[in-house]
């Protein structure tokens, strides 16, 4: 109240006790959100026994630094299947994401820029699909895939990921808001066919939305767990999420020789690095995608 003049100049500054309060709250938050990550970083440098009996507790490095040995063991344990899992995850995420993004681009553009019979009903189906929980489809997919002998193949994980109604929804909104009809009309008047208009005029303008949808669908496929866990029994086809939980269960239940806690921790750490980096470097794209639906007026 005392400083209407300054607050008009700097509208977003808070001062005094409130500032201290804010800083304290944020520091507590930072500690809370980083604690497990810090634990994982420390744990992945420990040997199996170091995890239980580390000299400096679980939040600090043990005297023996075993990260390189853990990585070496990841390369040899069960014939280096860990790297196979990581490769599978990349295949499921990158290829599945690419295909589902392509389908979303086409459909979003079609819904935004053409009037066709049945469009309204069709788009209402897309909106309805947004509400259907993806996990409710896992068991039905499993049952139908066992019927036609598709379980235990990469297709069983890749193909269902093509269904991405959220991607269609986001692409449609983007095309409506950022792709002027006049521009497409001008290309048509110039004699360009629909496909040429799409590839040469529309697609370049859609690039930011494409990146966002691709990033989001890739993350979705990368995090996938329920479906691959149900439809795959061949461990060579596992994505990293299913593989690591398998090792966790084995370490928990198995004899001492089967305990590979050190591989679960170092394997977890290595597996999160690509996605964390992608998020850090592509910040502006995921922010756009996460908020596209919410700030729509």
């Amino acid at each position: 109240m005392s400083s209407t003049a300054t607050s008009a100049v700097k509208p977003n500054k808070i001062r005094g006790n409130k500032k201290i309060f804010t800083i304290v709250v944020l520091i507590v938050a930072i500690v809370y959100f980083l604690l497990p990550v810090w634990w994982l970083i420390v744990a992945s440098t420990k040997s199996n026994s170091g995890l239980f009996f580390g000299e400096h507790g679980s939040l600090w490095f043990a005297n023996k630094f075993a990260l390189w040995e853990n990585i070496k063991q990841l390369c040899t344990y069960q014939n280096g299947i860990y790297w196979r899992w990581l490769l599978n995850s990349f295949i499921y995420a990158l290829i599945g994401g690419l295909l589902s993004t392509a389908i979303s681009i086409l459909a979003g553009y079609g819904f935004a820029k053409f009037h066709f019979r049945g469009k309204k009903a069709f788009f209402n189906l897309v909106l309805g699909a947004l509400m259907i929980p993806s996990t409710a489809l896992v068991i039905p997919l499993f049952l139908i895939m066992s019927k036609i002998g598709m379980v235990n193949t990469m297709w069983a994980v890749l193909l269902p990921a093509l269904l991405n109604p959220m991607g269609v929804y986001l692409m449609r909104i983007y095309c409506q808001e950022s792709l002027p009809d006049e521009m497409i009309e001008a290309a048509r008047v110039d004699g360009a066919g629909e496909l040429r208009t799409f590839f040469q005029v529309s697609l370049p303008i859609m690039t930011p939305a494409i990146t966002t949808v691709y990033l989001l669908s890739t993350v979705g496929a990368w995090n996938n767990f329920f479906l691959p866990q149900i439809v795959l029994t061949n461990s060579k086809l596992y994505p990293i999420t299913v593989g690591l939980t398998q090792w966790q269960a084995q370490s928990q239940a198995g004899a001492a020789s089967e305990q590979v806690w050190n591989l679960v921790t170092s394997g977890s750490l290595i597996s999160v690095i690509p996605m964390v980096l992608a998020f850090l470097f592509l910040q502006k794209y995921w922010v756009g995608g996460l908020t596209a639906g919410s700030v729509k007026s």
């Binding site: 938050a29 930072i30 634990w39 690591l244 921790t265």
Partner: peptide, 20 residues
């Protein structure tokens, strides 16, 4: 930092907390 856990798969998050 607050957003960071979103970049970590739910499975790995649960594994980490399970250890914790």
């Amino acid at each position: 930092v607050i957003f960071l856990p979103y970049a970590i798969p739910g499975v790995i998050g649960a594994l980490m907390w399970g250890f914790m």
